[in-house]
């Protein structure tokens, strides 16, 4: 599918990490896998969970919870691996991200997309590509390219603060 076709699609996949819900444009998600046997690779950053066999190819899997500064993922019935393609410094990399649960496919029209909040210097707002409100609920649409472009650990609390803040400002505006 070409880039133009992709931008026409207004579907987003939402998933849960702990109590928080995030969304990704469906064009970014290649596959959804159930939990698989993960082979650990020693001496890797803590958020690199290991590698899995994806149809004869080796796919690195990230413990997304650790990347966002939460406790490591515990395997449950709903734990899934989203196979995404991220552009990491100009190179397209396929990788799996562990999520606590896959939730739904949302329709978000272009005009409902809000710009990312610009707050705080210590906080990297570039990992948020957009915010969106669907049925009175706020979603952070993540920019996976920037999430994985550095080895830094991200901070979920600050991400949540950003969400609250934008929630407040939009409520005030209304």
């Amino acid at each position: 599918m070409s880039k133009e076709d992709l931008s026409q699609i207004t579907s987003y996949l939402s998933f849960r990490l702990g109590d928080e819900v995030f969304a990704l444009h469906v064009g970014k998600v290649q596959k959804i896998l159930g939990m698989a046997e993960i082979t650990e690779v020693p001496r890797a950053p803590r958020y690199m969970k290991g590698v899995i066999n994806l149809r004869g190819n080796v796919l690195p899997v990230v413990d997304t919870r650790v990347k966002f500064g939460m406790t490591p993922t515990e395997r449950t019935k709903t734990t899934s691996i989203l196979v995404i393609e991220a552009n990491i410094s100009g190179e397209f990399v396929m990788l799996g991200i562990l999520v606590d649960a896959v939730q739904a496919v949302l329709k978000i029209e272009k005009e409902d997309l809000l710009p990312p909040p610009s707050i705080g210097k210590q906080y990297r707002s570039d990992i948020i590509s957009n915010m969106a409100r669907v049925k009175e609920k706020f979603y952070i649409i993540l920019n996976m390219d920037t999430v994985f472009s550095s080895d830094d650990q991200l901070n979920m609390n600050e991400l949540m603060k950003a969400k609250e803040q934008i929630n407040e400002t939009t409520n005030q505006n209304q």
Partner: peptide
Amino acid sequence: PLGRMYHEQ
């Protein structure tokens, strides 16, 4: 290859 994510390896 392990790929970009394991480039430190």
